[in-house]
Amino acid sequence: MSNAETHPTYLQHHFADAEQQMDAAKTGMWVFLLTEILTFGGLFIAYAIYRAWNPEMFHFAHKALNASMGALNTIVLITSSLTMALSIWSMQHDKKKQTFWYLMATVLLAATFMVVKYFEYSHKFHLGQLPGKYYTYTGIEGANPHIFFSIYFMMTGLHGLHVLIGIGLIIWLMVRTKKGHFSSKYYTPLEITGLFWHLVDMIWIFLFPLLYLIG
């Protein structure tokens, strides 16, 4: 980077140049994603162990989930990942309006995901397919089906929480895009929020077959 642009407003004093600052932010985000992967990892491991212990119960219990709603949500999240990527692509080409609308699309898709999730959850609440000791449903064979629903609600719940956080972050990006904070020279917040959003997508890519499509 040339010296003429060493003091842009976004450069913090303890970095030598904008490139170092962007690198640091991205590295930090990746390390944060590592912590996210291991947080979800604990739940995936609980899932793996209980499924290995109770294969029949998992098989019977997963039928209570609606696979087409899960598939719909998978498509929705993949599309939102695409729009997120395209918003960054647009900013790289200084098409700021386009960035804004792609971000808007991402938020709407994420909201769609949550709405579908809401219908799934309320259906299960209604049937008494609740986690732990609040489980009252009697139509599932096998020992301790409440554990399946504990795991289901914890995994999708933690994932849903991440979707909500993502929505908040993307709205914040929309505001900053509108205010003209970003350009093809500086769009690090877009990039690192994008990383976060793709990770949320990636986790759902595993949750969907593991919870909805047990053979």
């Binding site: 912590t35 291991l38 947080t39 609980a46 732990g132 000791k133 301790n144 554990i147 914890m154």
Partner: peptide
């Protein structure tokens, strides 16, 4: 540390909801 975080969340949920991951009485 993230694994500790999720473990402690599971423990709190075990106490409040009885999710049946760690408590033998709940399976």
């Amino acid at each position: 540390t993230p694994v500790l975080a999720i473990t402690l969340v599971l423990l709190i949920l075990e106490r409040t909801l009885g999710i049946g991951i760690f408590d033998p009485a709940m399976g």
